[in-house]
Design a protein around this nucleic acid. Sequence first.
DNA 1: AGCAATTATGTAAGCGCTTGCATTTTACAT
DNA 2: ATGTAAAATGCAAGCGCTTACATAATTGCT
Lengths: 339, 339
Amino acid sequence: MAKLRSAPTLDDVAKMAGVSTATVSRCLNNPDRVVEATRQRVQTAVDALGYTPNFAARVMAARRSFTIGAIIPTMENAIFARGLQAFQEELHQRGYTLLVSSSAYKPEIEEEQIRTLIARGADGLLLIGHDRDPKIYDYLNQRKIPVLSAWSYAPEAPVPSVGFDNRAAMFELARHVIQLGHKRIGVISGIVEGNDRARMRVEGIRDAVNRLGADALALIETPYEIENGASAFRDLMQRERPPTAILCGNDVLAVGALRQAQEMGLDVPGDVSITGFDDIELARIVSPALTTVHVPHREMGRKAAQQLIDMVENQTAAEGEQLATHIVNRPSLGKPALT
Amino acid sequence: MAKLRSAPTLDDVAKMAGVSTATVSRCLNNPDRVVEATRQRVQTAVDALGYTPNFAARVMAARRSFTIGAIIPTMENAIFARGLQAFQEELHQRGYTLLVSSSAYKPEIEEEQIRTLIARGADGLLLIGHDRDPKIYDYLNQRKIPVLSAWSYAPEAPVPSVGFDNRAAMFELARHVIQLGHKRIGVISGIVEGNDRARMRVEGIRDAVNRLGADALALIETPYEIENGASAFRDLMQRERPPTAILCGNDVLAVGALRQAQEMGLDVPGDVSITGFDDIELARIVSPALTTVHVPHREMGRKAAQQLIDMVENQTAAEGEQLATHIVNRPSLGKPALT
DNA sequence: AGCAATTATGTAAGCGCTTGCATTTTACAT
DNA sequence: ATGTAAAATGCAAGCGCTTACATAATTGCT
C-alpha cells in the first residue's frame, strides 16, 4: 500500500464527526444500529475527508475479507474466461472481490496457489474439477474454508460442485454419432491426467461404444492447442482403417482436426465427421460449423458464485447443482459414407 | 483461551522454536539477517505447525500488500485474457498476487473498482488505455499509487504506458490496403467513446485516406460482437457504391463481416476485402484467414508487470514502452476487382 | 586477553479496524 | 416527575505481523 500521510483513518473521521471510532465503524457496517442524525454527521465527515476504509485492517479485525479466491488452469481458455467473468460479476454484485490465480494445469502450482489465497484471507475458494491430492482436501477441511468446485458435477466428491456431468454429456453425443451409423470412432482427447473433465468425457465415449457396439475406437491424448488437434487428426486418418467420425474432447482440438481435414482435402462431414465439446465461439465460426456440446458457462459461473457466497455467509455446505448441457447440431457431423 | 482449529500464528512458531516473534519474522522475510542455526530451528517449527503467515496482518504492519490490481473491460475478450494471463504469470514469479476486476467498458464501474482495489491495499494498478475522467488521475496521483496503462502507448498521457501505437499501426494497414488499389474504404469500428484504442485506430485510417487519397470512407461504429460485425457489413455493402475493402477495428468484428459476406454469397477477397486487428486465434482459423495487425499481447502483459513492479518497488515513474506491431498478410485481403 | 566493531536476537510499539461490554441517552409508562 | 427498558454510543482490548531500537552474543585485532 502506498504510504501516504494523507490517507484518512477511522480516527480522523471520528474526530471530525465528534463521535467515537466505534460509532463510525457502525455507521459504515451496520447503519441501522445508529441514529439517523449521527449517521448523517459521520457521512459528511467521510465525504469531506474522502475516507476509504483500510481493507487489511478491516480483515484483521473482522476476520472476514469479502474476498473469494479462484484458481483456474488458465484464463486463456475461453471456457474459463467466460465462466470466470460471470463469477466475478456475481461476486461484485454481492460485495465480494475476486482474487484470481492460474495453475497452468500443474497440481503443484495449484496447491501453492491455494495456500496463498488462504493466507490472503480468502473467505472461500473456487476450484476447477475434482482431481487433486487428497492432502489438499484435508488441508482445506482442517482450515474450514468453504470450497466449491465447478466445471464438473460430482455429488460424491469431497467438495460440493456446480457443473455438469461430463461423462453423461459426452455419452449422449457419442450415442448420437453411433446411431447415425458410425462404426469406427476416433477420439482426440485433452490430457486426462489430473483432469477429471477430460477423463470423464473419454469415459462417456467408451460407455457408448461398449454399450452400443461400435467396431473400433482409436484414442489420442494431446494438450489443448489447435495444432495438436490437427496432428492428432492426421495421425488418426493415416491409420489402416481410419475412423468415420472423430469425437474431440473440446472445441479447440476439434477445430484443429477440422482444419487438418481441409488441409488433407477431406470433406467434412462427407469423408469424416468431427465433433467438439464446450460450444465456444470458435465452434460456430469455423466452416463447416462444429457439432458440439453446449455448456452454460456463464450460468455456471453465476451459480457457483451464489452457492459459494451462501457457504461463506451461512457456514453451511452448499448443495451443488447439476447443470444441463445439450447437443448443438451443426454441419460437421453427418452420416458415414456408404462404403 | 487457545482456540482450537484456528491457524497457527507467528507467536506459536516463536514459542515452539524458542525465539522471539521478531526473529521468526526475520527468518521469513530477511533470512540473511539471521544465523543459519536459528533459521533451521524456526523452519522446523514452521513446517511442524503448518504455519502460513496471515496476509492481512502482514499488510497492515508492513504497509505493503504485494498485490497488484488490474481493471480490464472484460475477461471475455481474448486479447485481454491473454495479456492478463501473462501479466499474472510475471506477477506471480515476482511474488505478487493479482486482484482483478472488470469494468464492462463502463467508466463509473471502473472508477468504483479503482477505489476498491486501492482500499484493498493494491501496491499498484494496471489500467487499460488512457481515456478517463481527469478526476480519476487526480485521485490516483494524490494517493500516490503507481499506475500503469497498457494496450495503448501514449507518451504524453498522465500515466506511463506499455503498449503500441494504435493509430500508427492502423495507418500502416490502411496504407497497405490503399496501395493495393482500393479506393472505396469501409470501416467497422468498435465503440469509440471512452476507448482511445478504438478511436486511434479510426484516426489511423482517416490519416491514410486523407494522405493517400481514397475516394470514400464509410464508417459504422458498433459494439464488440461478431453479430454486430455482420450487420454492419450488410449495411455497408448495401450502400450505393459499396466499399471494395472493409477495415475492421478488431478481429471479432471482422469475423462477423466475413461470415456475413459468405452469407451474402460474396467472395472474399474477390468481391470485397476484409481486415481485422489484434490477431487473435479466430483470425487464423476462419477461412479465408484474416489479414490483421498482430499485437504482442503476452509480451505486453509481461512487460507491463515488470514495469509496474519496478514502479512499486523503486518509487520511480516507469518509462513506459512502445511495442511493435506488424501486419499479418492472409487471404482475406486482395486487390480490388477491376471494374 | 581485552576492547571495539559487528552481528544476532529480543522488546515493544504500533498498523486501522471491529466488537463485547459498559455507560449514557432516549422513550415511554406510571 | 420518576423509574425502567431499550436504544445509542463510547471504551478498550485485541486481530497477527513488522520494525525501530535496545540488548546480547560474536568476531577480529592488537
